[in-house]
């Protein structure tokens, strides 16, 4: 064989090897979340199979007193953590939404191009700030501040956690919404102005309805981030194992319970199993968020096609 023939034979050989390896990496990538799901499922279902608690008890009972032994016999009701998570998420969403929408609309519809070029990267920068830094600032600034204006028994509270989370998810929702608003064709706006609409009318009746899907995606991603955030919330919420009764009282969430107790709970015990079940619940919730986003997008494209 001459050199060229050898080179070509080698190229074929390497090409086949590379194809196998690259495909393996692609498939391996797809296996990672499945593997995570399987492991969480394997550990998280112990509560139901090994310790014989019902799903209804886990989801709806407020009695959380699992025994830290392999024998079990305690009560595994995670309702207060679930409601705590929901309450904090909703609170942060309510707090951040007006500001997010205002900032997104301001950036795309009102601000000059120069201001936009400054604002957009500045806001995006904040998605990367470590959550413990948010938690630290919450502790040293927000908590004393809240205490000075509201009469609170403890300085740690649901409200503090909501505010910290609101600041954390603000950049996510704002950038996603701004992207959605910016992708609305310019000609639609011009058509609306041409019909004598003011800027506000154009925004309210043309731009926002057209960008609905993208904004909803941003909100869901924000919610997902809020739901999964652990340490920043844990630092300011007070971690009291009670139902969230008041904005000004401490509470607990799924993530704070896991981060606080997983390290101490006995491996293989009922307490441990209960915490794994909460982790499984978090995994399923983030899966549900993804499906919701796909559902919304599919709905939007379907509608687009019908028109």
């Amino acid at each position: 064989m001459n050199r060229l023939q050898k080179a070509i034979a080698r190229a074929h050989r390497n090409d086949r090897t590379a194809k196998v390896l690259i495909t393996a990496c692609g498939v391996g990538m797809a296996l990672v979340p499945i593997l995570i799901g399987l492991f969480l499922f394997y550990r998280g279902t112990d509560t139901f199979t090994l310790f014989h608690h019902s799903l209804a008890e886990f989801l709806f009972s407020g009695v959380w007193s699992p025994s830290d032994t392999a024998e079990g016999g305690g009560k595994v009701g995670a309702a207060m953590f679930i409601t705590g998570s929901l309450a904090v998420c909703l609170l942060s969403l309510v707090l951040t939404l007006p500001f997010s929408m205002a900032a997104a609309i301001f950036m795309t519809e009102i601000a000059t191009p120069q201001a936009r070029r400054l604002l957009q990267p500045a806001i995006e920068l904040f998605t990367g700030i470590p959550s413990v830094v948010y938690g630290f600032v919450g502790l040293t600034v927000l908590i004393p501040f809240l205490k000075s204006i509201f009469p609170m028994p403890f300085s740690f509270s649901l409200l503090a956690a909501g505010i910290v989370l609101a600041i954390m998810i603000f950049p996510t929702i704002t950038t996603m919404s701004a992207d959605a608003l910016a992708s609305v064709p310019k000609s639609w706006r011009e058509a609306s102005y041409g019909l004598g609409a003011t800027r506000w009318e154009t925004i309210a009746h043309v731009v926002i309805p057209a960008a609905k899907g993208g904004i909803a995606t941003g909100i869901i991603l924000g919610l997902a981030r809020a739901m999964g955030e652990a340490l920043a919330v844990a630092m300011v919420i007070g971690q009291m194992k009670v139902f969230p009764k008041s904005l000004f009282l401490p509470a607990s969430t799924l993530t704070t319970a896991i981060s606080a107790d997983m390290g101490g709970a006995m491996e293989g015990g009922e307490y441990n199993a209960g915490l794994w079940t909460m982790a499984l619940l978090l995994f399923l919730l983030s899966f549900a968020f993804i499906f919701l986003i796909h559902y919304i997008n599919d709905l939007a494209t379907l509608k687009g096609e019908r028109k």
Partner: peptide, 10 residues
Amino acid sequence: GEARPVSPDI
């Protein structure tokens, strides 16, 4: 024939 030996025939 992927694995066919090569014969470019120059």
